Computed example of a mutant assay.
Amino acid sequence: MAGGWRALADQPAEPFALTGQLVQGGWARGTVPRGTAHLALNGKAVRIAPDGRFLIAFDRDAGPIARLMAESADGTLDDYAIPIASRAWKIEHIPLGPRPGSPPSEEFARRRAAELAQINAARSVERLSEGWRQKMIWPVIGRLSGLFGSQRIYNGTPGSYHSGTDIATGTSGTPFVAPADGVVMLAADSPFTLEGRLLMIDHGMGLNSAFLHCSAHAVATGDVVRQGQFIGRIGMTGRATGPHLHWSLKWRESRLDAELFVPPMPAMPKP
């Protein structure tokens, strides 16, 4: 049907061959219909690999439907509604108001602005990597001490939700590895105020990992890394109450649940 829309009711099957986790904080890989020139998710362009493969992902607070549209060279549009399952996040209701805090100092505000500028600049560059195609591995084996999406509600006022997965190993200095191939997009030379020694890896197609509170890095900005490669050591730099690795994943602006990219956490080896 050149130059027009193909009605969803007329489609006998999903045209994009999606596989993945179609839930809040989840992801999907797929293949575009033959002859596709452009692809968009919820109206925003999605990059297509030379072999027709693509990656999309869904924010922690994604709505129940995501719309994926492929446009062919002749103007034909394949429009598909993707149902996104909701999640039962770990929510704690605290019968107290948020702790009052003193306003940030001018020095903190200045430092924080510079840090965020570095993070945003790193994320604004698209690097070539095939890590997005891989099934990820855990960067380190340990106890899951903080879950993605968990949140506290103070007297009806929501606090910020936890944007990553915390892995505790008990000691600083424990090595961790790259969960997938990528390019180091940022390896902070000095600790950031909140993230501490921050390490970020671009896995391609808009997918990136961030590792917070490191005690040391084994790679530098611009390095190409391979899945399973030693890249740093766990610490408690920045705003942390104990040694652990905070691993967060983003696809563009969407925050994702790292547990949906890896197999179940193995049991920790006994000492």
Rank of each mutant, 00 (worst) to 15 (best):
S215C: 10
F261V: 10
V177T: 14
T221P: 04
G35R: 09
L207T: 00
R110V: 09
R60P: 02
R127D: 00
R143E: 07
A9C: 05
L245N: 06
D74G: 11
A121H: 14
I141M: 01
A168P: 02
I48S: 09
S86K: 12
E126R: 15
S160W: 10
K135D: 14
L55F: 04
D74E: 15
Q21V: 10
L41Q: 15
P50Y: 14
L186G: 03
A240N: 00
V184N: 04
R255I: 12
G173I: 06
V183W: 00
E195M: 09
P15L: 03
S145H: 04
Q151K: 03
C214E: 07
A220N: 14
A28P: 00
A28K: 00
G4Y: 04
A17V: 02
A57Q: 06
H244Y: 09
A168D: 10
I91R: 04
S248G: 15
F108I: 12
D166I: 08
H217G: 02
A45M: 05
P50T: 10
G196Y: 11
A113S: 15
R233W: 11
R111H: 10
A17H: 13
G3N: 05
G146C: 03
L77E: 04
S129K: 03
G142T: 01
G238T: 07
E130C: 00
G242D: 12
R53E: 13
P103N: 12
V219G: 06
L194P: 02
V219A: 07
S172A: 15
D61I: 13
S160A: 15
E115F: 01
D74C: 12
V140D: 01
G156W: 09
D79K: 01
K250F: 03
A220Y: 11
L39M: 02
G142I: 03
P191L: 06
S248I: 11
A210H: 09
G228Y: 10
R87T: 14
A13V: 05
W138C: 10
L198I: 08
F148W: 05
P243A: 06
I48D: 07
R133E: 10
H217K: 08
M200C: 13
F54K: 02
G156D: 06
N208A: 06
G75L: 07
A216N: 13
R110G: 14
W251Y: 15
L55W: 04
S163H: 11
Y154T: 08
T241D: 12
L116D: 14
E71Y: 13
M205Q: 10
S102N: 13
I234P: 00
G146Y: 02
V140E: 01
P33Q: 04
D166C: 10
D166V: 11
E115Y: 06
I153N: 10
P50D: 14
R29A: 01
A57H: 02
W247S: 03
P175I: 05
T171F: 13
G4A: 08
P266T: 11
N42H: 03
G204A: 07
P100W: 12
F16L: 09
L207S: 01
H217I: 02
